[in-house]
Design a protein around this nucleic acid. Structure first.
Lengths: 159, 159
DNA sequence: CCATTATGGTTTCTAGGGAAACCTTCGTCA
DNA sequence: TGACGAAGGTTTCCCTAGAAACCATAATGG
Protein backbone atom coordinates (compact mmCIF):
# COMPACT_ATOMS: atom_id res chain seq x y z
CA UNK A 1 0.00 0.00 0.00
CA UNK A 2 1.33 3.33 -0.97
CA UNK A 3 -0.82 5.75 0.89
CA UNK A 4 -2.05 6.65 4.33
CA UNK A 5 -5.09 4.47 4.60
CA UNK A 6 -6.50 5.77 7.82
CA UNK A 7 -6.84 9.20 6.32
CA UNK A 8 -8.62 8.03 3.22
CA UNK A 9 -10.80 5.53 4.94
CA UNK A 10 -12.09 8.31 7.09
CA UNK A 11 -13.68 9.85 4.06
CA UNK A 12 -17.35 9.39 3.41
CA UNK A 13 -17.89 6.19 1.48
CA UNK A 14 -18.45 6.88 -2.17
CA UNK A 15 -18.33 4.21 -4.83
CA UNK A 16 -16.66 6.62 -7.23
CA UNK A 17 -13.50 6.73 -5.21
CA UNK A 18 -12.71 3.38 -6.67
CA UNK A 19 -12.42 5.02 -10.09
CA UNK A 20 -8.93 5.90 -11.15
CA UNK A 21 -10.42 8.74 -13.16
CA UNK A 22 -11.71 10.19 -9.93
CA UNK A 23 -8.24 10.43 -8.44
CA UNK A 24 -6.80 11.55 -11.71
CA UNK A 25 -9.13 14.52 -11.96
CA UNK A 26 -8.72 15.33 -8.32
CA UNK A 27 -4.95 15.53 -8.57
CA UNK A 28 -4.92 17.09 -12.01
CA UNK A 29 -7.35 19.82 -10.98
CA UNK A 30 -5.17 20.66 -8.04
CA UNK A 31 -1.90 20.88 -9.92
CA UNK A 32 -3.32 22.94 -12.75
CA UNK A 33 -5.30 25.07 -10.33
CA UNK A 34 -2.17 25.91 -8.42
CA UNK A 35 -0.41 26.74 -11.65
CA UNK A 36 -3.31 28.88 -12.82
CA UNK A 37 -3.15 30.86 -9.59
CA UNK A 38 0.56 31.41 -10.02
CA UNK A 39 -0.01 32.74 -13.52
CA UNK A 40 -2.93 34.80 -12.34
CA UNK A 41 -0.58 36.93 -10.28
CA UNK A 42 0.84 38.11 -13.56
CA UNK A 43 -2.59 38.49 -15.14
CA UNK A 44 -2.00 35.59 -17.48
CA UNK A 45 -4.42 32.76 -18.17
CA UNK A 46 -3.38 29.18 -18.72
CA UNK A 47 -4.63 29.31 -22.29
CA UNK A 48 -2.52 32.39 -22.95
CA UNK A 49 0.51 30.67 -21.53
CA UNK A 50 0.01 27.49 -23.53
CA UNK A 51 -0.41 29.51 -26.70
CA UNK A 52 2.67 31.59 -25.97
CA UNK A 53 4.63 28.45 -25.29
CA UNK A 54 3.48 26.78 -28.48
CA UNK A 55 4.31 29.84 -30.51
CA UNK A 56 7.76 29.88 -29.01
CA UNK A 57 8.41 26.17 -29.41
CA UNK A 58 6.85 24.97 -32.64
CA UNK A 59 7.94 25.73 -36.19
CA UNK A 60 5.76 28.07 -38.26
CA UNK A 61 2.88 28.30 -35.84
CA UNK A 62 -0.49 29.41 -37.16
CA UNK A 63 -3.81 29.90 -35.36
CA UNK A 64 -5.25 26.77 -36.96
CA UNK A 65 -2.33 24.62 -35.85
CA UNK A 66 -2.56 26.11 -32.39
CA UNK A 67 -6.24 25.29 -32.19
CA UNK A 68 -5.43 21.74 -33.21
CA UNK A 69 -2.61 21.20 -30.79
CA UNK A 70 -4.33 22.94 -27.90
CA UNK A 71 -7.63 21.20 -28.45
CA UNK A 72 -9.47 24.50 -28.56
CA UNK A 73 -11.76 25.86 -31.23
CA UNK A 74 -10.41 28.41 -33.65
CA UNK A 75 -12.77 30.96 -32.26
CA UNK A 76 -11.35 30.56 -28.80
CA UNK A 77 -7.79 30.65 -30.09
CA UNK A 78 -8.56 33.80 -32.02
CA UNK A 79 -9.56 35.52 -28.81
CA UNK A 80 -6.52 34.29 -26.92
CA UNK A 81 -4.29 35.60 -29.67
CA UNK A 82 -6.06 38.94 -29.46
CA UNK A 83 -5.04 39.15 -25.83
CA UNK A 84 -1.45 38.17 -26.48
CA UNK A 85 -1.40 40.66 -29.31
CA UNK A 86 -2.80 43.43 -27.13
CA UNK A 87 -0.06 42.71 -24.60
CA UNK A 88 2.49 42.94 -27.41
CA UNK A 89 3.86 39.50 -26.78
CA UNK A 90 3.14 38.11 -30.24
CA UNK A 91 2.94 39.38 -33.81
CA UNK A 92 0.68 38.13 -36.59
CA UNK A 93 1.95 38.32 -40.15
CA UNK A 94 -0.02 37.06 -43.10
CA UNK A 95 1.65 34.46 -45.24
CA UNK A 96 2.93 35.42 -48.69
CA UNK A 97 1.92 32.11 -50.23
CA UNK A 98 -1.59 32.05 -48.78
CA UNK A 99 -3.15 35.25 -47.65
CA UNK A 100 -5.63 33.40 -45.45
CA UNK A 101 -2.85 32.13 -43.24
CA UNK A 102 -1.24 34.00 -40.39
CA UNK A 103 2.19 33.20 -39.10
CA UNK A 104 2.60 33.81 -35.42
CA UNK A 105 5.82 34.86 -33.75
CA UNK A 106 6.99 36.12 -30.41
CA UNK A 107 7.91 39.76 -30.04
CA UNK A 108 11.03 40.68 -28.14
CA UNK A 109 8.89 41.14 -25.02
CA UNK A 110 7.33 37.72 -25.60
CA UNK A 111 10.74 36.14 -25.94
CA UNK A 112 11.80 37.73 -22.68
CA UNK A 113 8.65 36.62 -20.88
CA UNK A 114 8.42 33.02 -21.97
CA UNK A 115 11.38 31.65 -19.97
CA UNK A 116 10.02 33.28 -16.84
CA UNK A 117 6.67 31.57 -17.30
CA UNK A 118 8.39 28.31 -18.07
CA UNK A 119 10.26 28.65 -14.81
CA UNK A 120 6.94 29.04 -13.00
CA UNK A 121 5.65 25.92 -14.71
CA UNK A 122 8.83 24.05 -13.82
CA UNK A 123 8.57 25.11 -10.21
CA UNK A 124 4.94 24.15 -9.98
CA UNK A 125 5.54 20.71 -11.37
CA UNK A 126 8.61 20.20 -9.24
CA UNK A 127 6.92 21.31 -6.04
CA UNK A 128 3.86 19.20 -6.59
CA UNK A 129 5.47 15.94 -7.61
CA UNK A 130 8.22 16.14 -5.04
CA UNK A 131 5.79 14.25 -2.84
CA UNK A 132 6.86 11.24 -4.88
CA UNK A 133 10.30 9.71 -5.09
CA UNK A 134 12.20 10.02 -8.34
CA UNK A 135 11.41 6.43 -9.10
CA UNK A 136 7.72 6.91 -8.43
CA UNK A 137 7.72 9.98 -10.64
CA UNK A 138 9.20 7.97 -13.46
CA UNK A 139 6.61 5.27 -12.96
CA UNK A 140 3.77 7.76 -12.95
CA UNK A 141 5.04 9.47 -16.06
CA UNK A 142 5.36 6.13 -17.76
CA UNK A 143 1.84 5.06 -16.91
CA UNK A 144 0.38 8.34 -18.09
CA UNK A 145 2.31 8.11 -21.32
CA UNK A 146 1.07 4.62 -21.84
CA UNK A 147 -2.50 5.80 -21.43
CA UNK A 148 -1.98 8.76 -23.73
CA UNK A 149 -0.41 6.44 -26.24
CA UNK A 150 -3.14 3.83 -26.04
CA UNK A 151 -5.84 6.41 -26.58
CA UNK A 152 -3.94 8.40 -29.19
CA UNK A 153 -4.12 11.59 -27.22
CA UNK A 154 -2.15 14.32 -28.87
CA UNK A 155 -3.65 17.54 -27.68
CA UNK A 156 -1.63 19.76 -25.42
CA UNK A 157 -3.84 20.14 -22.38
CA UNK A 158 -5.01 23.65 -21.70
CA UNK A 159 -7.31 23.68 -18.75
CA UNK B 1 10.29 1.85 -20.33
CA UNK B 2 6.59 1.58 -20.33
CA UNK B 3 5.56 3.34 -23.47
CA UNK B 4 6.06 3.39 -27.20
CA UNK B 5 9.00 5.71 -27.51
CA UNK B 6 9.11 6.03 -31.25
CA UNK B 7 5.63 7.46 -31.27
CA UNK B 8 6.35 10.02 -28.62
CA UNK B 9 9.73 10.98 -29.89
CA UNK B 10 8.14 11.89 -33.18
CA UNK B 11 6.28 14.69 -31.44
CA UNK B 12 7.52 18.22 -31.72
CA UNK B 13 10.07 18.90 -29.03
CA UNK B 14 8.56 20.83 -26.17
CA UNK B 15 10.25 21.23 -22.81
CA UNK B 16 6.90 20.96 -21.06
CA UNK B 17 6.49 17.36 -22.02
CA UNK B 18 8.97 16.58 -19.31
CA UNK B 19 6.42 17.79 -16.76
CA UNK B 20 4.34 15.11 -15.15
CA UNK B 21 1.58 17.68 -14.77
CA UNK B 22 1.51 17.97 -18.54
CA UNK B 23 0.74 14.29 -18.98
CA UNK B 24 -1.61 14.33 -16.07
CA UNK B 25 -3.75 17.06 -17.55
CA UNK B 26 -3.59 15.53 -20.98
CA UNK B 27 -4.88 12.19 -19.78
CA UNK B 28 -7.30 13.65 -17.25
CA UNK B 29 -8.83 15.98 -19.80
CA UNK B 30 -9.40 13.08 -22.12
CA UNK B 31 -11.05 10.78 -19.60
CA UNK B 32 -13.33 13.44 -18.21
CA UNK B 33 -14.05 14.76 -21.68
CA UNK B 34 -15.16 11.34 -22.81
CA UNK B 35 -17.32 11.01 -19.72
CA UNK B 36 -18.79 14.47 -20.25
CA UNK B 37 -19.76 13.51 -23.80
CA UNK B 38 -21.41 10.34 -22.57
CA UNK B 39 -23.45 12.34 -20.07
CA UNK B 40 -24.21 14.95 -22.68
CA UNK B 41 -26.25 12.43 -24.62
CA UNK B 42 -28.64 12.50 -21.70
CA UNK B 43 -28.47 16.26 -21.38
CA UNK B 44 -26.61 16.05 -18.10
CA UNK B 45 -23.54 18.03 -17.15
CA UNK B 46 -20.69 16.64 -15.10
CA UNK B 47 -21.45 19.07 -12.30
CA UNK B 48 -25.04 17.90 -12.21
CA UNK B 49 -23.92 14.33 -12.03
CA UNK B 50 -21.41 14.93 -9.26
CA UNK B 51 -24.04 16.79 -7.26
CA UNK B 52 -26.59 14.08 -7.80
CA UNK B 53 -24.09 11.49 -6.74
CA UNK B 54 -23.11 13.38 -3.62
CA UNK B 55 -26.72 13.87 -2.67
CA UNK B 56 -27.31 10.18 -3.05
CA UNK B 57 -24.20 9.09 -1.20
CA UNK B 58 -23.56 11.45 1.68
CA UNK B 59 -25.55 11.81 4.89
CA UNK B 60 -27.66 14.97 5.30
CA UNK B 61 -26.39 16.80 2.24
CA UNK B 62 -26.82 20.57 2.10
CA UNK B 63 -25.82 23.06 -0.62
CA UNK B 64 -23.00 24.39 1.53
CA UNK B 65 -21.55 20.93 2.12
CA UNK B 66 -21.89 20.20 -1.55
CA UNK B 67 -20.05 23.36 -2.46
CA UNK B 68 -17.30 22.35 -0.07
CA UNK B 69 -16.93 18.81 -1.26
CA UNK B 70 -17.24 19.68 -4.92
CA UNK B 71 -14.87 22.60 -4.74
CA UNK B 72 -17.39 24.90 -6.33
CA UNK B 73 -18.73 28.20 -5.08
CA UNK B 74 -22.11 28.26 -3.43
CA UNK B 75 -23.43 30.38 -6.22
CA UNK B 76 -22.51 27.79 -8.79
CA UNK B 77 -23.95 24.99 -6.68
CA UNK B 78 -27.15 26.94 -6.28
CA UNK B 79 -27.58 27.01 -10.03
CA UNK B 80 -26.77 23.34 -10.47
CA UNK B 81 -29.36 22.48 -7.85
CA UNK B 82 -31.88 24.63 -9.70
CA UNK B 83 -31.36 22.43 -12.74
CA UNK B 84 -31.64 19.19 -10.82
CA UNK B 85 -34.72 20.58 -9.15
CA UNK B 86 -36.27 21.58 -12.47
CA UNK B 87 -35.68 18.04 -13.72
CA UNK B 88 -37.38 16.73 -10.60
CA UNK B 89 -34.42 14.65 -9.55
CA UNK B 90 -33.90 16.29 -6.17
CA UNK B 91 -36.00 17.96 -3.48
CA UNK B 92 -34.97 20.80 -1.18
CA UNK B 93 -36.50 20.95 2.28
CA UNK B 94 -35.59 23.62 4.80
CA UNK B 95 -34.29 22.39 8.11
CA UNK B 96 -36.48 22.62 11.21
CA UNK B 97 -33.57 23.51 13.46
CA UNK B 98 -32.10 26.20 11.21
CA UNK B 99 -34.31 27.79 8.64
CA UNK B 100 -31.31 28.95 6.65
CA UNK B 101 -30.33 25.38 5.90
CA UNK B 102 -31.71 23.21 3.13
CA UNK B 103 -31.57 19.47 3.21
CA UNK B 104 -31.24 17.87 -0.17
CA UNK B 105 -32.66 14.52 -1.14
CA UNK B 106 -33.22 12.47 -4.25
CA UNK B 107 -36.70 12.11 -5.61
CA UNK B 108 -37.90 8.72 -6.77
CA UNK B 109 -36.86 9.67 -10.30
CA UNK B 110 -33.46 10.72 -9.00
CA UNK B 111 -33.04 7.44 -7.20
CA UNK B 112 -33.90 5.59 -10.38
CA UNK B 113 -31.50 7.65 -12.46
CA UNK B 114 -28.42 7.62 -10.27
CA UNK B 115 -27.45 3.96 -10.77
CA UNK B 116 -27.69 4.39 -14.52
CA UNK B 117 -25.31 7.33 -14.44
CA UNK B 118 -23.00 5.47 -12.11
CA UNK B 119 -22.93 2.65 -14.63
CA UNK B 120 -21.86 5.14 -17.30
CA UNK B 121 -19.11 6.38 -15.02
CA UNK B 122 -18.01 2.83 -14.27
CA UNK B 123 -17.93 1.99 -17.95
CA UNK B 124 -15.97 5.07 -18.82
CA UNK B 125 -13.33 4.42 -16.19
CA UNK B 126 -13.15 0.76 -17.06
CA UNK B 127 -12.81 1.37 -20.77
CA UNK B 128 -10.16 4.02 -20.38
CA UNK B 129 -7.90 2.34 -17.86
CA UNK B 130 -8.13 -1.05 -19.46
CA UNK B 131 -5.11 0.06 -21.43
CA UNK B 132 -3.20 -0.71 -18.24
CA UNK B 133 -2.81 -4.06 -16.55
CA UNK B 134 -4.54 -4.59 -13.22
CA UNK B 135 -1.22 -4.23 -11.49
CA UNK B 136 -0.46 -0.98 -13.28
CA UNK B 137 -3.89 0.32 -12.41
CA UNK B 138 -3.24 -0.37 -8.75
CA UNK B 139 0.11 1.36 -8.96
CA UNK B 140 -1.40 4.40 -10.65
CA UNK B 141 -4.19 4.62 -8.13
CA UNK B 142 -1.67 4.38 -5.33
CA UNK B 143 0.53 7.12 -6.70
CA UNK B 144 -2.43 9.44 -7.23
CA UNK B 145 -3.65 8.75 -3.71
CA UNK B 146 -0.24 9.49 -2.36
CA UNK B 147 -0.21 12.84 -4.15
CA UNK B 148 -3.72 13.68 -3.00
CA UNK B 149 -2.73 12.73 0.51
CA UNK B 150 0.49 14.71 0.50
CA UNK B 151 -1.28 17.83 -0.69
CA UNK B 152 -4.35 17.33 1.46
CA UNK B 153 -6.69 17.33 -1.47
CA UNK B 154 -10.20 16.53 -0.42
CA UNK B 155 -12.43 18.04 -3.03
CA UNK B 156 -14.38 15.78 -5.28
CA UNK B 157 -13.30 16.84 -8.74
CA UNK B 158 -16.01 18.27 -10.92
CA UNK B 159 -14.59 19.33 -14.20
C1' DC C 1 -31.72 42.16 25.16
C1' DC C 2 -29.91 44.34 21.42
C1' DA C 3 -26.07 45.08 18.18
C1' DT C 4 -22.74 42.90 15.67
C1' DT C 5 -20.94 39.22 13.30
C1' DA C 6 -21.14 34.80 11.01
C1' DT C 7 -23.48 31.57 8.13
C1' DG C 8 -26.59 29.60 4.37
C1' DG C 9 -28.41 30.49 0.12
C1' DT C 10 -29.47 33.37 -4.07
C1' DT C 11 -28.69 36.86 -7.57
C1' DT C 12 -25.94 39.78 -10.57
C1' DC C 13 -22.03 40.71 -13.20
C1' DT C 14 -18.17 39.26 -15.75
C1' DA C 15 -14.77 36.25 -18.13
C1' DG C 16 -13.73 32.27 -20.87
C1' DG C 17 -14.70 28.85 -24.22
C1' DG C 18 -17.76 26.03 -27.54
C1' DA C 19 -21.03 26.21 -31.60
C1' DA C 20 -22.25 28.12 -35.48
C1' DA C 21 -22.68 31.74 -38.74
C1' DC C 22 -19.91 34.64 -41.42
C1' DC C 23 -16.18 36.62 -44.62
C1' DT C 24 -12.24 35.99 -47.37
C1' DT C 25 -9.18 33.34 -50.06
C1' DC C 26 -7.59 29.15 -52.11
C1' DG C 27 -8.17 24.78 -54.68
C1' DT C 28 -10.70 21.91 -57.80
C1' DC C 29 -12.94 20.57 -61.76
C1' DA C 30 -16.14 20.96 -65.41
C1' DT D 1 -12.40 30.57 -66.51
C1' DG D 2 -15.89 30.47 -63.59
C1' DA D 3 -18.62 28.06 -60.09
C1' DC D 4 -18.45 25.55 -56.10
C1' DG D 5 -16.58 23.61 -52.12
C1' DA D 6 -12.87 23.68 -48.63
C1' DA D 7 -10.00 26.05 -45.41
C1' DG D 8 -8.24 30.00 -42.32
C1' DG D 9 -9.71 33.35 -39.33
C1' DT D 10 -13.19 36.30 -36.88
C1' DT D 11 -17.53 37.44 -34.77
C1' DT D 12 -21.83 36.51 -32.41
C1' DC D 13 -24.50 33.99 -29.29
C1' DC D 14 -24.93 31.05 -25.44
C1' DC D 15 -23.71 28.57 -21.31
C1' DT D 16 -21.02 27.73 -17.22
C1' DA D 17 -18.58 29.02 -13.22
C1' DG D 18 -16.24 32.40 -10.14
C1' DA D 19 -16.55 36.91 -7.48
C1' DA D 20 -18.99 39.75 -5.03
C1' DA D 21 -23.07 41.93 -3.49
C1' DC D 22 -27.22 40.80 -1.33
C1' DC D 23 -31.02 38.92 1.87
C1' DA D 24 -32.47 36.20 5.67
C1' DT D 25 -31.49 33.88 9.82
C1' DA D 26 -28.66 32.27 13.58
C1' DA D 27 -24.98 32.92 17.05
C1' DT D 28 -22.23 35.81 19.97
C1' DG D 29 -21.09 39.04 23.34
C1' DG D 30 -21.42 43.39 25.51
Amino acid sequence: MVSNDTFWNSRVANPLESHIGYWLRMVSNQVSGSFARALQERQISVAEWVALNQIGNTPDPTPARLADSMGMTRGAVSKVLDKLDAKNWIARTTSDQDSRVQFLSLTAAGRRLLPQLTAIADGNDERFFNALTKSEQATLRGLLRKLADAHHITQTPVE
